[in-house]
Simulated assay, not measured.
Amino acid sequence: MLRNHRLADVAHRIHAAAPQYAPLLVTPVASDKRKGEVVAFIGQQVCFFERGSRMPLTGQPIEVMITRALYHRNASGHFDRDRVRALVIRVVTQDDMLIAHDGFECSGSMCRTTAAGAIGHGVTTLTPGRTDIFEADNVNSRFCGREDVPVRPGRVWIKRADTRRDVIRIEGLARLEDAQFAPAVRK
């Protein structure tokens, strides 16, 4: 009973630290370059819908999550993380669940990147998956004479079916600001 009470306190602190939620809405439009395909825009940044996901109707605003970024390549053929070509998004469905987290941090001797996520009154461990969510890089910061980078609490999308797992992989980001690539996105 005491353990459940402590977990509920931790879950409450995680919820309180996360920013207010505002749905990420886009209005799909027909692609100019690929006949029969649909794209959307977040600000000036073009967004492609995840392959194999539900394709939305054009002209009707829908809620989406950001699943990853696509980057331009530099002269040597490597991805240029300072130049986002497009964002990949997916329509939010009933199979998805929005949860709060306490911020991702890469630290420790094993360089583990995780966050605590609050599901109702319980707590779970989250991993970033392929989302490229912001993570505070604090590996060896104390030994290198650097200040620790503060973690950034937020909200993320997970699969509702995964809530019983010990470690849950994030499916998508609820806000552009939570991504490592946010500064490289066209506003």
Results as ranks from 00 to 15, higher is better:
residue 78 H to K: 11
residue 101 H to Y: 12
residue 97 M to R: 15
residue 113 T to A: 10
residue 126 L to M: 07
residue 120 G to H: 12
residue 62 I to V: 15
residue 86 A to K: 13
residue 115 A to S: 15
residue 58 T to C: 10
residue 115 A to M: 08
residue 90 R to I: 01
residue 58 T to L: 05
residue 117 G to R: 00
residue 80 D to R: 05
residue 82 D to F: 02
residue 110 M to L: 13
residue 121 H to W: 06
residue 71 Y to C: 08
residue 63 E to D: 09
residue 118 A to G: 10
residue 116 A to W: 06
residue 73 R to D: 08
residue 100 A to T: 07
residue 118 A to Y: 01
residue 119 I to M: 02
residue 89 I to H: 12
residue 127 T to E: 00
residue 102 D to P: 09
residue 93 T to P: 02
residue 117 G to I: 00
residue 74 N to W: 08
residue 107 S to H: 11
residue 130 R to C: 06
residue 105 E to L: 04
residue 61 P to A: 12
residue 118 A to L: 05
residue 111 C to A: 13
residue 125 T to R: 00
residue 76 S to C: 05
residue 135 E to P: 02
residue 91 V to Q: 14
residue 122 G to W: 02
residue 81 R to D: 06
residue 83 R to A: 12
residue 108 G to A: 10
residue 121 H to A: 14
residue 68 R to P: 02
residue 87 L to M: 13
residue 54 R to K: 15
residue 65 M to T: 08
residue 91 V to R: 09
residue 90 R to F: 00
residue 51 R to F: 04
residue 67 T to H: 09
residue 57 L to C: 06
residue 99 I to Y: 08
residue 79 F to E: 09
residue 118 A to R: 03
residue 100 A to M: 04
residue 93 T to Q: 03
residue 61 P to C: 04
residue 84 V to I: 11
residue 92 V to Y: 00
residue 69 A to F: 09
residue 123 V to Q: 13
residue 108 G to W: 04
residue 96 D to C: 03
residue 54 R to P: 07
residue 63 E to Y: 08
residue 68 R to M: 13
residue 103 G to Y: 09
residue 101 H to M: 08
residue 107 S to D: 11
residue 124 T to S: 05
residue 114 T to M: 06
residue 117 G to T: 00
residue 76 S to P: 01
